[in-house]
């Protein structure tokens, strides 16, 4: 690995990560904040690659850049525009900044001052296979608990976010009234024309 290229990659990815994270603080629109978060996450994925953790980098891109940011954008778009304001900060910003400053000083001091011992030169190879094997050998119980946790979280999120039956009935009634007022579209009788669906099938196949 060429030394100059490694330096360039590290410093540009570090700037991308910290810059994206800092822009979240000052961006006024919450959607822009999520876009900056995506940039920061991509920088972290690149940093994983410089640490030769290729599997974790791919997982980072798939889950954080792909799934979590889209989930956040959906949640923001399901609340109206007035709630997208990210510029407001709480009134106790001064004490918060003080606490953060103390944490920063102590963690930086520990990171720099500690003697971390000998640095290993060789990176782990064949990581995806090793992680998969240890997940179903050593860590089978946490793996199963994680599966149950994810299922419970998904079911819980759906149960929380779905509307009550009364709300849904009111919403459907208002929607129906709107459609009746227009008098042109009847949602029950709208059927896809068979020719169009066949055409889309052949398009998908090709």
């Amino acid at each position: 690995m060429s030394d100059f290229g490694f330096h360039l990659a590290f410093w540009s990815l570090a700037a991308m990560t910290l810059g994206g994270a800092s822009m979240i603080i000052i961006s006024r629109n919450l959607i822009h904040a999520v876009i900056w978060l995506v940039m920061s996450m991509l920088g972290i994925a690149g940093l994983y690659l410089t640490l030769s953790a290729d599997f974790i980098a791919v997982v980072q891109v798939l889950i954080y850049v792909g799934a979590i940011s889209v989930l956040m954008l959906f949640a923001i778009m399901l609340t109206p525009r007035a709630e997208r304001d990210n510029s407001q900060n709480i009134k106790t910003g001064g004490p918060a900044a003080l606490v953060v400053l103390l944490v920063m000083i102590s963690t930086l001091w520990v990171a720099i001052d500690t003697d971390w011992g000998a640095v290993r030169e060789a990176a782990l190879t064949d990581q995806a296979r090793l992680i998969g094997e240890s997940l179903i050998k050593h860590y089978i119980l946490p793996f199963e608990i994680g599966a149950v946790l994810l299922t419970a979280a998904l079911v819980g999120a759906i149960a929380l976010a779905r509307q009550d039956d009364e709300d849904a009935a009111v919403h459907a009634a208002s929607l129906q009234a709107e459609l009746d007022g227009e008098g042109s579209v009847d949602p029950v009788n709208v059927v896809d024309p068979p020719i169009a669906s066949e055409a889309s099938d052949t398009e998908a196949a090709s």
């Binding site: 603080i25 709480i90 918060a96 900044a97 953060v100 944490v103």
Partner: peptide
């Protein structure tokens, strides 16, 4: 940075 965002944002 994340700690400061979590402590200071209203949203």
């Amino acid at each position: 940075i994340g700690f400061f965002i979590a402590l200071s944002k209203k949203n």
